[in-house]
């Protein structure tokens, strides 16, 4: 039995391994632990793909069924705010990528700052989203709560009612996306405190790395939501 003290090199392996405090005993090596955690995170993201996938599937189907309603309703969204939010979220994703780099290169201050910037742009996204939702409230475009077909009279009553399907999906999809962002923002605050203590800049980067995967996944969901909800029916009359 080889007894290894923390910090002591394990020499029988192909490359050298330092036993670090975060190394759990059921993993043979630090790499194995890191890869297992990364694999687990990707498996979780696969379930997320299927979760949002169901919503995308519903959107695809109803968009074909009630196309005139979807065209008219999508025209009530602000392309400017949607594009602005896309840029804000991409900027947030860039800061997150830089945070992972800062953790890997052991820059404690830079890591805390990049996490802060990631959070700043994440919150900015939600603020813009709030103004978009407020506009929907003002225009009575919220199914079940405050809805009127007044803006869609030319579709005929039946088809005008179907704009509620579009808005239901709009709020379900952007709302679920926003919920993911809120969870992420809370986690980032927690990671900022821990990063400030230097927990992730001594070689233990897995939490930051795996949180980055989550944050980028949420980015990707928006990358699809923006064209589908705002853009694709712009040219249709």
């Amino acid at each position: 039995m080889v007894v290894t003290q923390p910090g002591e090199l394990h020499e029988e392996h192909e490359h050298e391994h330092v036993h670090l405090p975060q190394h759990r005993h059921h993993f043979e090596t630090e790499e194995q632990q890191r890869e297992a955690a990364s694999f687990g995170m990707w498996l979780f993201l696969l379930t997320e793909i299927m979760f949002f996938g169901g919503l995308f599937m519903a959107y695809l189907l109803y968009r074909n069924w009630y196309n005139p309603a979807f065209v008219a309703a999508s025209h009530t969204l602000s392309i400017k705010l949607g594009a602005l939010n896309t840029a804000i979220l991409i900027t947030s994703g860039f800061c997150m990528a830089m945070a992972v780099w800062a953790a890997e290169t052991r820059k404690r201050k830079a890591l805390v700052n990049f996490l802060g910037l990631t959070n700043f742009f994440g919150i900015a996204f939600l603020v813009v989203k709030y103004f978009e939702y407020a506009e929907k409230w003002h225009d009575s475009h919220i199914p079940g709560l405050k809805f009127s077909i007044a803006d869609f009279g030319k579709l005929g009553v039946d088809m005008a009612q179907k704009t509620q399907v579009y808005y239901s999906l709009y709020f379900a999809m952007t709302g679920m996306h926003a919920l993911h962002m809120i969870i992420g923002i809370v986690l980032i605050f927690w990671y900022m405190v821990r990063a400030n203590r230097g927990e992730f800049t001594e070689g233990y980067v897995a939490p930051i790395e795996n949180f980055g995967l989550y944050w980028h996944f949420v980015d990707i969901v928006w990358i699809f939501l923006f064209p589908l909800l705002y853009l694709i029916d712009l040219g249709a009359k």
Partner: peptide, 27 residues
């Protein structure tokens, strides 16, 4: 740009490219 049925296809195609770029490098 009015492209008829091509508009949704182009939009989704660009989104797929963006997602691929994010997955390959950011992730």
């Amino acid at each position: 740009v009015e492209m008829g049925a091509l508009n949704p296809i182009v939009a989704v195609l660009i989104a797929v490219i963006k997602a691929t770029v994010v997955i390959l490098w950011f992730m």
